[in-house]
Design a protein around this nucleic acid. Structure first.
Length: 315
DNA sequence: GATCCGTGGTA
DNA sequence: TTACCAAGGAT
């Protein structure tokens, strides 16, 4: 959960998750869609599928691997997580290199080469920190101390060098470059895409939903029926040809959502119907609107749902 | 190596 | 508002 996600955001998800799946065996035998539902809103949903597959692999192995190589072979476990688990859970003297450790290391050795090209060099330098006997003796504490140093004092924008225990040995501080490191290659600009989604509710308060494809963006998550997300806006007439049912559609509002690699502008249309026909539900399923908070709706779809619902209750 | 993959917080 | 960033991994 903590891969690219803050401790604060993870906290409540983690507590609910371990209550629902208390053991690796429980997680392994759970339905994949229940795992995805427990993850809804956290983002990077491949992590949930990988974690589920990982639990099944661990159960098949008869227990957790305790070496970096063994851990690294599991689904969703890369170089960082393998080292973190090895050091923290099994006391293996390795240094997990996350964003914090990359930053601390780049400053400590005044590495000017930009990321991501500098990644290998930074990993080697970070591993070298383990040359210290005290660090090697307490791998778990050393790893977490590096995380905490990076997230508190050696922070991205304005590092508190005056309070840093490593100030005297930090090349970045000596050179006055610390606050500018690590350098990063310029990012590509974020393109804009446009989509339309439809929120329709029947007299019993049921909403029509459908499941997204098994691969790609928001894979296997739930969504409101709609158009694809393309690079040009949809006209109303064009959009309505994609409506899931015949109804008196009204424009309920617009939703903007920023993904990692594009910005999405969605127009939400809303309507009421007395009841759905079997034909209406052919490509999807119905869910009481009150239960959509616990469905596997990603945040963008939660926003669309709220926009449609609020509109229907004003109109 | 480059691209894809979410979301929320903060300066 | 924009831009950056977070205990990254898979393809």
């Amino acid at each position: 959960m903590l891969q690219q996600t803050t401790v604060k955001a993870v906290g409540p998800y983690y507590l609910r998750f371990v209550e629902k799946f208390p053991t690796v065996q429980a997680l392994a035998r759970a339905e994949r869609d229940d795992v995805l539902a427990a993850w809804a809103g956290l983002g990077y949903y491949s992590r949930a599928r990988n974690l589920h597959a990982c639990a099944q692999a661990v159960v098949a192995l008869g227990g957790f691997p305790c070496t970096v190589e063994g851990l690294r072979a599991l689904p969703g476990i890369g170089a960082y997580t393998a080292a973190a688990v090895a050091a923290i859970a099994f006391g293996v003297p390795v240094v997990p290199v996350d964003g914090n450790v990359e930053r601390v290391t780049a400053r400590l050795y005044n590495v000017q080469e930009p990321l991501p090209a500098a990644r290998k060099k930074l990993a080697q330098l970070a591993d070298g920190l383990n040359g210290d006997a005290a660090a090697r003796q307490r791998p778990s504490d050393f790893a977490q101390a590096l995380f905490d140093l990076g997230s508190s004092l050696c922070s991205p924008r304005q590092p508190a060098c005056g309070l840093c225990p490593w100030q005297a040995v930090c090349a970045g501080h000596a050179q006055g470059t610390a606050a500018t490191l690590p350098r990063k290659a310029p990012k590509a600009e974020r393109p804009v895409r446009y989509g339309v989604h439809f929120m329709v509710m029947d007299g019993a308060g049921q909403v029509l939903l459908r499941k997204r494809p098994e691969t790609g963006l928001l894979a296997a998550m739930t969504e409101l029926p709609g158009t694809d997300w393309r690079t040009t806006p949809w006209t109303e007439a064009e959009a309505l040809t994609h409506a899931p049912v015949a109804a008196a559609w009204q424009k309920a509002g617009a939703v903007k959502h920023v993904f990692t690699h594009f910005t999405l502008n969605v127009v939400v249309y809303a309507a009421r119907v007395a009841q759905f026909s079997n034909q209406d539900v052919r490509d999807g399923f119905l869910l009481p609107v009150a239960r959509t908070k616990t469905a596997s709706l990603p945040s963008i779809m939660q926003k669309c749902m709220t926009t449609g619902y609020d509109f229907l209750h004003r109109a």
